[in-house]
Design a protein around this nucleic acid. Sequence first.
DNA 1: CTGTTAGCGCATTCAA
DNA 2: TTGAATGCGCTAACAG
Lengths: 358, 358
Amino acid sequence: MTASKEPESITLQDVAKAAGVSRTTASNAFNRPDQLSAELRERILAIAHQMGYSGPNPMARMLRTGRAGAIGLVFADSLPYAFSDPTSIAFLQGVSRVCERAKASLLIVPTYDSEAAQETIQQAAVDGFILYCLDENSPAINRVLDRKLPVVIVDLAARNGIASVKVDDRQAARQAAEHLIQLNHRQFAILSLELLPDQYIGAVTPQRIQQATFQNTLDRLFGYQDALSAAGIDFSQIPIEECPGNSEELALERALHLLQQMPRPTAILAMSDRLAIGALHAAEQLGIAVPDELSVIGFDDIPLASQIRPTLTTIQQPLVEKGAIAAQLLLETNPPTTSKLLPTQLIVRESTGIAPAR
Amino acid sequence: MTASKEPESITLQDVAKAAGVSRTTASNAFNRPDQLSAELRERILAIAHQMGYSGPNPMARMLRTGRAGAIGLVFADSLPYAFSDPTSIAFLQGVSRVCERAKASLLIVPTYDSEAAQETIQQAAVDGFILYCLDENSPAINRVLDRKLPVVIVDLAARNGIASVKVDDRQAARQAAEHLIQLNHRQFAILSLELLPDQYIGAVTPQRIQQATFQNTLDRLFGYQDALSAAGIDFSQIPIEECPGNSEELALERALHLLQQMPRPTAILAMSDRLAIGALHAAEQLGIAVPDELSVIGFDDIPLASQIRPTLTTIQQPLVEKGAIAAQLLLETNPPTTSKLLPTQLIVRESTGIAPAR
DNA sequence: CTGTTAGCGCATTCAA
DNA sequence: TTGAATGCGCTAACAG
């Protein structure tokens, strides 16, 4: 038998030849139905299919058109973590909703270590990036900025000329603390998210706060401080426990520790709902009644917050919308440059109540 | 002032010229550090940076090398739904873990309608696809297969020569039903996932079962039937309620309906944990004690299953691992062709117990 | 409606 | 070590 042709890579050229038309016409058959007769188009498509041609090569087309048809999403975190944290999942929901409408694909770029970030961000064939990042020092930030594509940053301090989406964490945290102050609480403790990317667990010192690179965490901390100081409470005396990875288990453990101090706090300010839920479990373990003996307030308003018992008082931030707006900014404004500050809202549920009499 | 050069698109060529070297050498500076002296490399990189060159254009490089550095993930569902369903999120966690290790990006391809699927799947610049799909008739399947790239299909009936990952749903469902039969139950009801992609809500007829295109649902249904028939129970008498979208709210509503029938079922077989949780809420609303008066068994073992009260008896399937294995098959075998059947396990918790005396 | 002409920006032969 | 040439596969002008 005579050697059959290479089965590899049939090109538009081959299809055109087989159909007896020019490359352009073949190309138009795929991309510009209006540029040729319907019947010719059908014939070309049929021949292409029959030859096993799978359509114009996306890479060649991208090079030619300069458009990738995808936006990149950079989480400056490990991906499995991002896919397990309710806040980032809600964010993804919002992003994906807008992408779907725009028929844009979503490229999730791993940046596990700075070396990986270097490579993967550089090689991402996208039309723009959403940078979802909490650590101001993350190397991924500059990698993304270096690409000189449209960028929207989320939850990061605004930068010159770069579109950003965030909420006023400080004001929101202040509101959370004020809620408890109004309920007569004076003995506070704080469950904090990470301040630095070093996986440190435990008591937070003033030095640590000074070195902090997670602006979000810092803002919430300052928000608590604003309210407490205004109420005449000495912030430096308030125990703060850091729980990296937004871990419920860790929060449970640190809350147990906090609740065994004397005098026992009557209110816990948790920087996320997961941390708050950890605190709720700790209270349960110790037989401390919520909200009668202990009030707990969270942050985020994740779906679970309204499902657990007691339901969780928290600060609602529009998680899904944050993703949707970021994607919209990226896809619909050119170049994206406006920054959005999204509203938050205190949601009072069952986990907070009047402070117990002393 | 004399016009400055176009700020647009500096190429490797420009960098080479500015550095006084050839294109090749400039290219090597980025891709083959060992092909030129370290000092020359540094110089070139410095000049490139200074010129505002952001590194080799990913699209051009992809075209040249034929590698995209990304794998495509096609959910044959709306993306916001995929990002809200605990089973697909767990799957994503697994996929992303492996991608991260392999420094491969993950392209999430929207396929909301068949027209979108046509375009987005065709234009995805990826090295292979994971097809996560429940509906055997989804147009996305052929779109993906047409691309003639390595493919791993998940939760879909195996196809000739195509790698697949799934669990033995039928056997697993059978085990769930057998568990309840052993607890002496005789009055059953079923909360079903969708059988067809038509958003139908309510009672399932034999005709509908015959037309079903969601193989998963069908397998679980047959698994229940296997066990019940073996126990001498007439399957055709068992009420089945279909709850599309794996919706807890819908399950609550349909379970309320089921629990108001006479004779009231003593056991509910739910095809997912979310449906089971809906049933639990229904029982709570009606003041029916679980497990004393009603047993409920789920499927999947999502994280919430062990957190709600009563904790949920369920069939555990390795959700995260399913994603990890799919990604591994795609990234590490070439071409992927072996199929994996993953184990399931009955997890007995608090929501099932001995049937109440008649 | 169709074909001809020109690159998109790069990585890789091969020869120097 | 470096440089000159080649084409990856395609689309967009433009002229027939």
